[in-house]
């Protein structure tokens, strides 16, 4: 069971990894277009950039589904997966539909591969049989099972867009906490995939909380080494600057060395800081249409100033909490088991 889940996760992450450049390009170009147009779409360059951004966004789900199927069934999986993703887009089943399409396409193609064929015509299989039946079956299935997914997607979208007050804060809190809890591990990736998927539906708030949870842990811990230098080893203090840089470019893993050395005190600090910051960012109305790039893309966020306020609060909470919780150390003992990578 665990293994099946693990495999499914690898397939999903393969799809996500090929999709990310499309989301980055789409998110940034679209935002630049809106900035040029003074906050809305204006004829000319603004319109052109927004259009390009939208074209790129539209490729998200097909590419993800295609490469999920590629991960499951190798090369022949791509075409049925991509078309399944296009169907998911067309019927409004979005990102969730794309995930389903990717798994279906991979499975269907693997079944088609097993059909016994006479050696004389075996060559037809990869170039004719699998593309035709693969695409046909996957698209057909998606048209049917995509409908409830589409309804659910629309509900989710409306619900997320209408969120306000306590609900919105809770959403930010949960996403922030999930991002920080395993610093780039599976829980972090689930929250990230959800937030990226929501970009496809035009819901940009979850990504803002996501960003808080991505960048806060390493930066907050770097701050903690300055606040309470006698509670960190020499090596930990030296890695404060690298951790700061990693945090700034969006690499949560920079926090891992600190967490490994003292998980029970460090992990709660980064969770609380990120969760509080995530909740605050959403209450203040910050939204992020871009899933990659770190501090460099903050200017492209919606209400970037509010985001920065929440971000600073998150860093401060993590920094002070870790500085307070950590115990005075005896360098000789801790240096041994401090950083082990």
């Amino acid at each position: 069971m665990k293994e099946t889940f693990e495999k499914a996760r690898v397939h999903l992450m393969t799809g996500v990894s090929y999709m990310i450049p499309f989301v980055v390009a789409g998110g940034i170009l679209l935002t630049i277009g809106l900035l040029i147009g003074g906050g809305k779409v204006n004829p000319g360059l603004s319109q052109t950039l927004v259009n390009i951004g939208v074209y790129s966004f539209k490729m998200m789900v097909p590419i993800m589904a295609g490469y999920m199927a590629f991960s499951i069934a190798d090369r022949p999986g791509i075409a049925p997966g991509v078309v399944g993703g296009v169907v998911a887009n067309e019927i409004g089943a979005g990102f969730l539909g794309g995930i389903v399409a990717g798994f279906i396409a991979g499975w269907v193609v693997n079944q088609l591969k097993k059909i016994p064929m006479h050696p004389y015509v075996a060559a037809l299989k990869p170039i004719i049989i699998i593309p035709i039946f693969g695409v046909g079956i996957v698209a057909g299935l998606m048209l049917i099972i995509g409908q409830p997914i589409s309804a659910f997607s629309k509900e989710l979208e409306t619900w997320l867009k209408s969120m306000s007050g306590a609900n919105l804060a809770l959403l930010g809190f949960i996403i922030g906490a999930m991002m920080a809890v395993d610093m780039g591990g599976p829980i972090n990736k689930i929250a990230f995939a959800f937030s990226v998927g929501m970009l496809n539906q035009g819901v940009y708030a979850p990504m803002a909380a996501c960003w808080i949870g991505i960048m806060t842990p390493p930066i907050g811990l770097a701050l903690a080494t300055k606040l309470a230098p006698n509670k960190f080893t020499e090596e930990e203090k030296k890695s404060a600057i690298p951790a700061l840089i990693m945090g700034a470019i969006g690499i949560t893993e920079g926090a891992i060395p600190y967490a490994v050395a003292d998980p029970l005190r460090v992990i709660p600090s980064i969770i609380v800081g990120s969760a509080v910051g995530g909740a605050l960012a959403l209450i203040l109305g910050a939204q992020a249409p871009v899933p990659s790039g770190g501090v460099l893309v903050i200017p492209f966020f919606i209400k970037p100033f509010m985001f920065v306020i929440a971000f600073l609060v998150a860093i401060a909470v993590t920094g002070f909490m870790a500085a307070y919780l950590k115990k005075q150390i005896n360098e000789n003992v801790t240096a041994e088991k401090g950083l082990n990578y």
Binding site: M13, T14, V16, S17, I20, G184, K189, M246, I251, E253, S292, Y341
Partner: peptide, 11 residues
Amino acid sequence: ACPSGVAHTYM
């Protein structure tokens, strides 16, 4: 190899 291909992979 990791999903975003910038951090985990090289670390």
